[in-house]
């Protein structure tokens, strides 16, 4: 599983807003017209990001195995026809070209995950999105991250309780309905507790946010991101 790992690489030290901007700009270029030299360029940049974040390709491939399997099936499915000649190369090549662009995006994304704590992303969301929606999303992201393990433990308890009462032998309808209702009820109960806790702590629209600051190393990455966006725009307009 790919998660944040503390470190002092250049990618770790970048401002999260810079890293997010770079990811989206990179994806824009990847989704433009795809030629072989451009694909090679995307892979070089993607692998470069992994290197700069001190993350191994093996860890990325292991983390994204499911995505890669679905991607790999694309050309195979495209090649198969339901009659003679049974296999056609041209659609497979089109599909292969289409799926290949996703892999370097996965590399850049993995470097971000590896080098950026969730709380920094939360702060980036809160500082970038204007108004109360941005504040609620920022707080919501942080709280959701905090509560996933709690709800997971609830699920384990519910499942064990059902199993202890021989619930595994019941029909699919009974098992799934019981588990779903119990999980929804528990989630709602927890939400009531969370609401009380937030109000007890004077949950406000104007909290003190974590400090984010651009530094000198962000500049070239912003330059690159702007270059990517310009490149994608030129590509889109067909110049």
């Amino acid at each position: 599983m790919l998660t944040y790992t503390p470190g002092s690489t250049i990618v770790h030290r970048l401002d999260p807003r810079t890293k997010l901007a770079f990811q989206f700009a990179f994806a824009l270029v990847a989704f433009g017209t795809l030629t072989l030299p451009r694909l090679v360029g995307l892979f070089v940049i993607g692998l470069g990001c992994l290197h700069l974040a001190d993350l191994s390709i093996r860890a990325v491939l292991r983390a994204y195995w499911f995505v890669l399997v679905v991607l790999a099936l694309g050309p195979l499915i495209a090649a198969i026809t339901l009659g003679p000649p049974w296999l056609r190369l041209d659609p497979a090549v089109v599909s292969l070209r289409s799926v290949a662009r996703i892999v370097p995006i996965l590399f850049v994304s993995a470097a971000y995950i590896h080098a950026t704590p969730i709380r920094e992303t939360r702060a980036a969301i809160q500082r970038t999105l204007p108004g109360r929606v941005g504040q609620l999303l920022g707080v919501g992201v942080a709280l959701t991250f905090r509560y996933v393990p709690v709800i997971r433990a609830d699920l384990r308890r519910v499942r064990d309780a059902i199993r202890a009462r021989n619930g595994d032998t019941r029909s699919l309808r009974e098992r799934s309905q019981r588990l779903t209702v119990l999980m929804v009820v528990r989630a709602l109960r927890r939400s009531d507790q969370l609401a009380v806790a937030l109000q007890a702590r004077c949950f406000a629209w104007n909290p003190t946010l974590p400090r984010l600051r651009f530094s000198r190393i962000d500049l070239p990455v912003w330059g690159l991101s702007i270059g990517f966006v310009a490149f994608a725009a030129i590509d889109l307009l067909g110049f």
């Binding site: 998660t3 983390a63 995505v67 969730i118």
Partner: peptide, 20 residues
């Protein structure tokens, strides 16, 4: 943001721009 919450513990922009 990077928490492995998508199917098969997936996460990140790369996953979102992927097939699913």
């Amino acid at each position: 943001a990077g928490a492995p919450v998508f199917s098969n513990a997936g996460a990140g922009v790369g996953y979102v721009l992927g097939p699913t």
